[in-house]
Computed example of a mutant assay.
Amino acid sequence: MKQGDLVVRKSYGGDVLFRIEAIQQTHAVLKGTDYRLLADSPIPDLSVVRDPEYTSASQQVRIKVNESMKRMHKQRELQSEQTEEEIRVALQQTQPYFEVPGKVLHLDGDNNYLKKSMQLYSSMRVPAHGIHAHESQMSDMLYRLLPQFRPDIVVITGHDGVLKNRRQEDLLSLSSYKNSQNFVNAVRVARDYEKNRDGLIIVAGACQSHFEALLQTGANFASSPGRILIHALDPVYIAIKASYTSIRETINLADVIHGTISGVDGVGGIETLGRHRVGMPKSKVTPAATTLASIRRTT
C-alpha cells in the first residue's frame, strides 16, 4: 500500500472511495475521490481498490452526477428559450442578444477537484478563474485576489470533516472541524470586501462543514446542514446556478438545493439575487476566441 492508491475503509463497509494522500507510520491520510472529505485511517483497516468503476459506491455517485448534469443543461435550455420569447414579445420581433453570466472566482484546497470544477464551468460557458490553495492560505489570498479578479461569485471549498469522537453538542464549536475555521476566515475576508450579499455571492464549505458558522459570517450558500458528505461538484453546481440566474430574480432555493448531488442535508443557503445579465444588440463583429475558465496554482 502506497501513496496514490485507491482504497476503501473496511470498518465503514467501503462506503466512500479514497486516495491515499500520505502514509504516516501506522496510519494513512485519505482524500475522497468523489466527496470533499479529508480523513485518516489505520492502514490495516484499508483495502486497495483495483477497479473503482465497479464499486457500488462509485456507481451510485455516477448516476447522481449524470442526473444533476442533465438537469443543469435542461435548465439552461429552458432559460434561453424564455429569454428569447421575452425579447420577441417586448419588441414584436426576434432580436439577437448577448449574455453576461456572473464571473466566478473558485478557491479549492484540492487540485484534482479544481480541475474537474473548471471543466464543468467551461462546458457550461461560465467565466471562471480557479486557484489551488491550501485551506489555511485562502483568507490571506483573498485580500489580493478579490480586487484583482472582481468576481460576482466566489467559491471557497476544499476538504473538511468532523474530528473523531465528537459529541453532538461539540458540533457547535469550530474546533471540532478540520477546516471550517479556515473557511470561516476566508468568508469573513470576502464579506468585508463586499458587504452586500447580492453584490458578491459566496459559496463556502466542504464535507461536514460548520454550516451555521459559514452563513453567520456572510456566506450565501454553505455546507453542510446535516454534517454529511457533499459531492465535489456541489459548490460548482450552485455557482453555475447563481451565474445564470437573472439579476432580476431570486435564486430558487428549493430548486438549487434539489439540483445538487447531496441534497438538503448537504447544502443550504439564503435568498439571493442572481448575477446573469442580458444585453442587446448582439455585436456583428466576431471577437477572437477567449478562454472562459482558467486555473492558477499557488506554491
Rank of each mutant, 00 (worst) to 15 (best):
K2S: 02
Q3V: 14
Q3I: 13
S11V: 08
Q24N: 11
Q25E: 15
A28W: 03
A28Q: 10
I43C: 06
P44D: 10
V49N: 04
R50T: 13
T55M: 15
T55H: 09
T55P: 06
S58E: 01
V61R: 02
V61Q: 01
V65T: 12
E67F: 00
H73V: 15
Q75Y: 03
Q75D: 12
E81P: 01
E81A: 15
L105M: 01
N111V: 12
K116I: 00
A128Q: 10
H129K: 15
G130Q: 06
S136W: 06
D140C: 03
P151I: 06
I156E: 01
G161R: 01
L163Y: 04
K164G: 07
K164C: 04
R166C: 15
L171Y: 13
S180C: 03
S180M: 04
Q181E: 14
N185K: 05
A186N: 07
R188L: 04
R188S: 14
K195I: 07
N196A: 10
R197H: 15
V203M: 06
V203L: 07
H210E: 03
H210Y: 02
L215D: 05
A222S: 14
A222L: 06
L229F: 13
Y237V: 15
Y237E: 08
Y237M: 11
I238V: 15
A239Y: 09
A239L: 09
S243W: 08
S246Y: 02
S246V: 00
A254I: 04
D255F: 00
I261Y: 07
I261F: 05
G266D: 09
V267K: 07
G274E: 11
R275T: 15
G279C: 09
K282S: 02
K282V: 01
S283H: 08
P287G: 06
A288L: 13
A288W: 05
T290S: 14
T291S: 12
A293H: 09
T299H: 10
T299I: 08
